[in-house]
């Protein structure tokens, strides 16, 4: 069973150590929640997996390949989709163009239509706005578009950076439900970075807690959610 395996990963920005010896693995059909305070290194972890920053040492292995040696474009083409923080839709393009862009490298012109329709079925609010420019969308719709655009290439690994940031609780809950179903239905490997520990633990099977660039907890999500001392200490609730 293919897993995403991160071993001894260290990243520095000049003299600042953002990540130190981070190791964990994420399995198929499971959501792995990466939790931690602001500045813990969660975003850096995702950026290192997709090659946007290069690790000082350590490896990222997936499906028999060592990702840390590949270019960003190649990693993405290998089936790793990354939705960065801040609903990174391209505002100058329409909803449809954003989705088409996501499908380009995987599907031929013919195949694209049906694949994009699947995304509209998954996120119906987007279907009503397909000809609108992305800058007219609400926060929740943008997040749907950003995630939909990542899914349209049928990735096997999905990296999500703070998808619930700035969303109303009910929108977050709906998004999490979609993610949970999708992970099981398509046997995805999902790495979910969140500050909102409560909602991400509700759909995660595994939890990795990062503090000051180091992994301090790597456990079953249910265990972390049930450990009030740990929650209090690192997750603040």
């Amino acid at each position: 069973m293919p897993v995403l395996e991160i071993e001894d990963l260290s990243v520095s920005y000049g003299a600042v150590h953002a990540l130190t010896d981070v190791s964990f693995s994420a399995a198929e059909g499971e959501v792995t929640a990466v939790l931690g305070a602001n500045g813990a290194g969660k975003t850096t972890l995702l950026r290192a997996i997709t090659g946007l920053v290069r690790p000082r040492k350590g490896t990222v292995r997936y499906d028999g390949e060592q990702l840390e040696k590949m270019s960003v474009e190649k990693i993405v083409r290998h089936g790793v989709a990354h939705v960065p923080e801040g609903r990174s839709v391209i505002e100058e393009m329409t909803v449809d163009e954003n989705l088409r862009l996501g499908s380009l490298f995987r599907f031929s012109r013919r195949q694209r239509g049906p694949v994009i329709e699947e995304i509209y079925a998954l996120f119906p609010p987007l279907a009503e706005r397909r000809r609108q420019h992305a800058n007219t969308l609400s926060g929740g719709e943008r997040q749907m578009l950003a995630i939909g655009r990542a899914l349209v290439s049928r990735p096997k690994v999905l990296l999500l950076d703070e998808p619930s940031l700035g969303l109303a609780p009910i929108v977050t809950a709906r998004l999490m439900a979609v993610l949970r179903d999708l992970t099981q239905a398509s046997n995805l490997i999902v790495v979910l970075v969140e500050q909102n520990a409560r909602s991400s633990l509700s759909i995660a099977q595994k939890a990795v807690v990062i503090n000051l660039g180091r992994v301090v907890v790597c456990e079953d999500a249910a265990k972390v959610a049930g450990d009030s001392e740990l929650r209090h200490h690192y997750l603040g609730y």
Binding site: T50, L52, V72, E73, V76, R77, A81, H82, P84, S88, I90, E91, E92, M93, E97, R100, L101, G102, L104, F105, R106, R109, R149, S153
Partner: peptide, 22 residues
């Protein structure tokens, strides 16, 4: 498609790379 890629690179280069655009 080429034009769509070029616009993506113009508006959001990092996002374009994350969508597999060279």
């Amino acid at each position: 498609d080429l034009g769509l890629r070029m616009r993506a690179v113009a508006f959001a280069p990092e996002t374009a790379r994350l969508l597999g655009v060279r």
